[in-house]
Write a protein that binds this DNA or RNA. Structure first.
Length: 572
DNA sequence: GCCGTTTTCGGCCCGACTGTTTTCAGTCG
């Protein structure tokens, strides 16, 4: 069995092994290819079958051959040979913080050390003392890195929704307490990647030392790792790393662009600049010694002949070409949202909860909401909101707001007891009725939305593909956002490219700083979604048309949610 | 090993910081 993730790991390790051999440019070439493969929305096997491997950025003749060999045989002979040449323990060594390929190689060549255990013993035996380039501090640094590595994996990337509150707290502290004028978070957080390895915070300040003081005194900060003139690195409790950089106002745009990345995007930008006789760094865009841009990101891109590119697209996946043609898509934004088809109440909600939801929808100026009135539990039994609450839903009127009722069911599994709910459309969730549970024979309401779909793409790309295909066949939207039950940005891109609309959770009833919607928007934007690609950014009219794509098989008849008579008239 | 509105060969982002140096190499992002 082959997988993209497996191929990525092979190419990453090849890069590390080549690093250890002292190769200059090959390692980056293999890493580049690995990053590209990681962000693919389909299996390498499918790309290979179409003979399109070379269209993957960073994949040329040699890497194409290795991918094909991997797909055929499950292994790569070049990789196997490198592993025989170089002790695998050296890769572990060079991955220790503060150590790199050069140092690991010196241990191997000069001291015969082939792995972490041997290095630990060598340090204990004093064999490093007196070796050129290894002073007391360096040896101590290595010793503690070894101890940390032995204690288990260090700080790993964290889900972006967990990082939101941390980012917010630090940004607030810098704004209010540190005299910082502009404050922005860059890095993969700003690009809305699913996971974030560290935070890069940029500020302008007339008093940098004060910014550093306030920052390192923040209650979340456990340890100051490093402080220079313009940059400070701290570790939070739990080991999460945050970098603070203080820049001049005239550099702010260039610095934000630079520290937002991605690496591949920046490399492309730099070579584009070089071709035009310009130089880009974090201080600005320069022609010789003259700064031609730097205060804003728009200036930086414009000086290179490019339209501004939303951070979520900066992955070198064709966005620079789009920006050169002035064809960057207008990605969906919060202000585009016009409703929510998936509003949950608690199962025992009282009628006044309905009024609360409606008030919130009005406050957001939404045109429609779909409220879940019942569904099917894992054991196959149905549940419904209390009768009085359902009655309130049916009778409540709110000018300009259409209220529809949804039932959560399996793809075809509608429990008989949920029949009486009187619903407008179904939300399909991954469940099936156990044998013996009576299934409704009535014509079910159409499926307009697929939700609660387990979607960690890395773990089961095939399952995501099946759900996207089912959503497409039902002409239903599919939910995108944080958490294991929603599609991530890679799966969202796959859905969008298959012509499936995305649905964003708008977090009814949540606290003002709840990150769910922001993260969902970020994922949708990473997937390249414009308002037209998002079900709940469409007008009520268009949403009512959700069932007008490829026809459902079986029992599907009407569109969902049903159009109001006036909507039908307008559409006609 | 990849790549090309100057190139199919000759480039490949670039600056901050640390430690160990006495002018710089290695690592990191």
């Amino acid at each position: 069995m082959t997988s993209n993730a497996d191929a990525v790991e092979i190419f990453r390790t090849i890069a590390d092994l080549l690093d250890l051999l002292g190769e200059k440019f090959k390692p980056e070439a293999y890493r580049r290819a690995a990053r590209s493969i990681e962000s693919l929305t389909e299996d390498l096997g499918a790309v290979s079958a179409r003979h399109e491997l070379r269209s993957i950025p960073g994949v040329g003749e040699a890497i194409e051959e290795k991918i094909d060999e991997y797909l055929r045989t499950g292994s790569v002979s070049y990789y196997e040979r490198l592993k025989r040449e170089i002790p695998p323990g050296l890769v572990e060594l060079m991955r220790l913080p503060g150590l790199g390929p050069k140092t690991a190689r010196r241990f191997w060549v000069e001291l015969g050390i082939e792995g972490p255990n041997e290095l630990r013993d060598a340090i204990a035996a004093g064999r490093l003392a007196g070796v050129k380039g290894f002073g007391e501090k360096k040896i101590e640094q290595i010793r503690s890195a070894l101890v940390a590595a032995a204690a288990g994996p260090g700080a790993t990337r964290r889900p972006i929704e967990e990082v939101y509150p941390v980012a917010r707290a630090l940004v607030d502290a810098l704004r209010t307490g540190a005299g910082a004028e502009r404050v922005e978070v860059g890095g993969s957080f700003r690009r809305a990647r699913e996971t974030v390895g560290d935070l890069d915070i940029l500020v302008t300040s007339k008093d940098p030392p004060r910014a550093f003081e306030v920052f390192s005194a923040h209650p979340l900060v456990a340890e100051v790792k490093m402080r220079g003139e313009t940059k400070e690195t701290v570790l939070l409790t739990g080991g999460f790393q945050v970098d603070l950089r203080v820049v001049q106002p005239e550099e702010f745009g260039a610095a934000l662009q630079y520290f937002t990345g991605s690496k591949d995007h920046n490399v492309r930008l730099r070579s584009l600049a070089r071709d035009r006789g310009l130089k880009v760094n974090e201080y600005g865009v320069f022609r010789g010694d003259e700064r031609v841009a730097g205060a804003t990101e728009e200036d930086v891109y414009a000086s290179l002949g490019l339209a501004w590119i939303p951070p979520e697209l900066r992955e070198d996946r064709g966005e620079i070409e789009l920006a050169a043609r002035g064809a960057v898509p207008s990605l969906v934004a919060e202000s585009d949202l016009r409703g929510d088809l998936h509003v949950h109440l608690t199962a025992d909600a009282r009628p006044d909860e309905v009024d609360r939801i409606v008030a919130e929808a009005r406050q957001r100026a939404y045109a429609y909401i779909g409220v879940v009135v019942g569904g099917v539990r894992a054991d196959g039994t149905g549940w419904l909101l209390p009768a009085a609450t359902r009655a309130r839903l049916s009778e409540i009127r709110s000018p300009g707001l259409r209220i529809t009722r949804a039932l959560e069911t399996g793809l075809s599994a509608v429990p008989k007891e949920a029949e009486s709910a009187g619903v407008d459309f179904r939300i399909v969730v991954p469940t099936s009725l156990p044998s013996g549970v009576p299934e409704s024979q009535a014509d079910p309401a159409p499926a307009a939305l697929f939700a609660h779909i387990g979607s960690s793409v890395a773990s089961d790309a095939a399952a995501v593909k099946r759900w996207v295909e089912e959503a497409r066949r039902n002409a239903a939207a599919i939910e995108v956002g944080p958490g294991p039950e929603r599609l991530d940005s890679t799966a969202a891109r796959q859905a969008r490219e298959s012509g499936v609309l995305l649905h964003l959770p708008t977090a009814f009833g949540a606290a003002a700083d709840d990150p769910t919607l922001r993260v969902a928007l970020g994922f949708a934007r990473r997937a390249g979604a414009t308002p037209k690609d998002v079900a709940n950014a469409r007008s009520q009219n268009e949403v009512s048309d959700a069932g007008s794509g490829p026809k459902r098989g079986r029992k599907g008849t009407s569109n969902a949610p049903p159009r109001s008579p006036s909507a039908k008239k307008r559409a006609a």
